[in-house]
Write a protein that binds this DNA or RNA. Structure first.
Lengths: 213, 213, 213, 213
DNA sequence: TATGAATGAGATTTCATTCAT
DNA sequence: CATGAATGAAATCTCATTCAT
């Protein structure tokens, strides 16, 4: 068996997934610190010690989760595909839809990782560098592109990007804080947010056109 | 000395504040769990045991912080004062300015409490009921008021409210995640967000007027 | 390995016994509260934490001791075996011999548990219900039996029972208080007590016979 | 004010009594270790620190209680008064009545001190030397006296003494263990015990007379 | 003398991690 | 690889005692 035996590799990956799934559930229910390795092992149906064959330590489980979240989120390709064909508004609508959907589908992940991502600078840096920054950069560049084409103006693209991401993470926040309305009317809320962003862009575009005249 | 002796009361309050300040700093730097009672005591310049003369236990420090944050935030009166004199856009601008300012001034508090507020349902409920819900309700009612006056239309006031609060908390989130731009260009960002919201409202209002014709 | 694996079970029982023995010695020497978990662990030759794999907490060690004392004391069967063949005096002699012997052989246990059995109502109830009450009831019923056969009279069997048990526990008490004579002349004392009880019964029986005539 | 100022002395004694009473109640209810100095101070209606003006430390409260119990129990004089006038049986009856009565009247004291008296060798020695030993010695000597007068025989006076005291402490024990019958039928039980001891003595005396003939 | 806030030593308990089987 | 008992560091919290007022 070579060190890259594909069968063994698949087994290892399956085990890692099994453990991570158990950990996500536990962390999201009880928080990182109140969850014990025993809790995770029980839920995964394995022995405590086995976890240490797949993860360096408890903290490493969190790191793996952040990485997995980052990998789970291929905003890039989707956006790039659309970028050539659509208007700014369409792109931003799509981003909002896509991200908000992703987050509510993975609410357990969010509850599991965000407390630690906020609290631990190491994890924070990882999340920012591997997930947030690339995605923001992408949207930013796209907006720059449209600005240069005079399709939109006035608003600094870095600020606009941050407003969009603020709406995304803010929505997640409201959901995590248990706001019933945001939870129960998710699709209406997503529509509303999209309309809102579209309206703002349209308005500002109109303004800039007027100014340009 | 009666149980409500004012001098003693002031001393007690001062001690509580001294301890809470030390705790906020430590929690925001190292997180709730990695901060020990000894850490807090040292930073406050007192003995470990003294903390327990002012707070029931470590968790009680968190609860006190959440309560203090809620008390620190008199959105209500401010909004109500303005509500009679200004336009919707002005009100929302004010809310955004006010809340975003408050949050970045209390970033330590945010870093200290949010990980636990997300992770602990008890704390979450306290934060939601005492801070978030009343403030959202207030903005919601104000929007309802303008809707009835035909000053704005189309957008469900509950959704609009949530978008505004999402922008607020989302911005806080980006800041807590260490987004340099949001931190370094706070005032520009606040301006941008305000402009954005104004533009969206204006646009939607225009739409509704057209529709109404 | 099933949850009732006999080998594992034996190992667990052995560990529990090892820990309990260490605890009994320490408790009897220093008392429950002055004995630390570390003391017990050291004497048992294990780590502090290991104790908690076998006992819920420190108090649980006391409970286990009381239960063990109760199980250690099969007065019942012994008495019942004899009841058909012997006289009252023989039975009571046997009970005295048996109990006094048991107690001085387990003086460490007595010193370990009685302070807590007296002080804690929960433990007191357990000791009374599982050890004292059944044994007293047994003697009581036996005396009732002889009373109905006219073999003895006059004395209320519940009172007689309590006198016998008072002698037993009182002797234990004197021993625990360090009365040298009671300790050094145990067998003479046991003989004396037996003679004493026999004499009392004989005398009262004689009285009742005279009265009956 | 001289160091033996009687007024001051009386005040000091009153304070000590006040504190000790509070301590006895608390110790008997919650046990020595679960009772805090604060508990005692509250019940006595004074401040924590004040207790330390009257007692060296918490342990000293126990010592004071044992001394007080010893002083409370003037068996000596009573016995000595009677010794010249009465029979052995009367004396022993009196001793039983007196001691059993004393103990049930001071059940709180018993519950407060015995757990510690058993557990702490220092306290045990004090109790034995100052309370138990003198009283046992007294009864012993009295029995010796009657033995020499041929009023009684056969039974070793040291053993007889211990049986009597075993009955006394054993009764206390049953009471402390919560035996309802012993508690509710105290006087019947005391009568029974007296009858029992009388009967035993009478019987043994008869035996010895027969043997002597 | 009385007070009660401050102290800090010390005990219990938890639990991540290791490692022999 | 899997297991889970053993480990012991570390943290919270209590409370007897002190001492400035």
């Amino acid at each position: 068996m070579s060190p890259t035996d594909p069968v063994k590799d698949a087994v290892v990956q399956a085990r890692r997934r099994q453990i991570l799934e158990a950990a996500v559930i536990q962390f999201s229910e009880k928080g990182f610190h109140k969850t014990t390795i025993k809790d995770i092992a029980r839920r995964a149906g394995i022995a405590d010690g086995t976890i240490y064959n797949y993860f360096k330590n408890k903290q490493d489980l969190m790191v793996a989760m952040v990485i997995q979240i980052a990998e789970l989120a291929p905003l890039m390709t989707t956006v790039q595909e659309m970028a050539t064909h659509r208007s700014v508004e369409d792109i931003l609508s799509m981003v909002l839809h896509n991200r908000l959907g992703l987050m509510s589908e993975n609410l357990s992940y969010a509850r599991a990782i965000f407390p630690q991502v906020i609290a631990q600078s190491e994890l924070r840096a990882k999340f920012y560098d591997e997930m947030l920054k690339p995605n923001m950069r992408l949207v930013e560049q796209m907006l720059e592109h449209y600005v240069q084409q005079n399709a939109i103006r006035t608003l600094d693209s870095r600020i606009a990007t941050r407003i969009v991401f603020a709406i995304i993470f803010g929505s997640l926040f409201l959901t995590m804080l248990g706001d019933d309305f945001a939870i129960e009317n998710r699709s209406a809320f997503v529509e509303g947010a999209t309309t809102f962003v579209r309206a703002a862009l349209a308005s500002m575009q109109a303004d800039s056109e007027e100014t340009a005249q």
